[in-house]
Amino acid sequence: MIRISMLMTTLALAALPAQDLGSFIEWDKLSQKAAESVNVNLEGTLLELATRFLSSGKNGGEKTKKLLNDLKGIHVRSLKFDKEGEYSLSDVDKVKSQLKGPEWSPIVDVRSSKGGDNAGVYIKTDGKQILGIVVLAAEPKELTLVEIKGSIDPEQLRELGGKFGIPDLDIRKKKNAEEE
């Protein structure tokens, strides 16, 4: 049984290649039609500064600090629209086509046949090491592309859930708790 939470435990992220996946979608053009637009690009000194500020708070445990220290870059583009059909699925396919190379492994690729949510998680490896992770989510009114760089221990990534206002990632854990 495939579960994101389980898959994440096997991930150890290293640096992503310089290729900009975001360039396959015309974000600037689409953002003019969007109700909400997010564009986060954190790398290098700015990321160090951000992680230092984030981990210095009361939530900054040792595991969290390690995760944040191992993070080498995070790029997020996300658009929320008021109505459906504002972006073309062909744009999403362009990105997906870039993620079909031999270095890419789709961990999850879900596509709804009735115009629902399309989402995928992809990892890039060099055959031995995992080099990065991409999350692509194409919802009817929302389009999101996340690229994370850095050798992150996924166990620690899960630790972020419930901290800093981030929802708990481990849905199964929640479900079990509810059942109990």
Partner: peptide, 23 residues
Amino acid sequence: ARRQLLLALQITSEKLSLVDRQL
């Protein structure tokens, strides 16, 4: 930068949850 990183992590978390729900 801290606020930006938080936002990025929140969005990442939401989308991973979305994938999990789809699965």
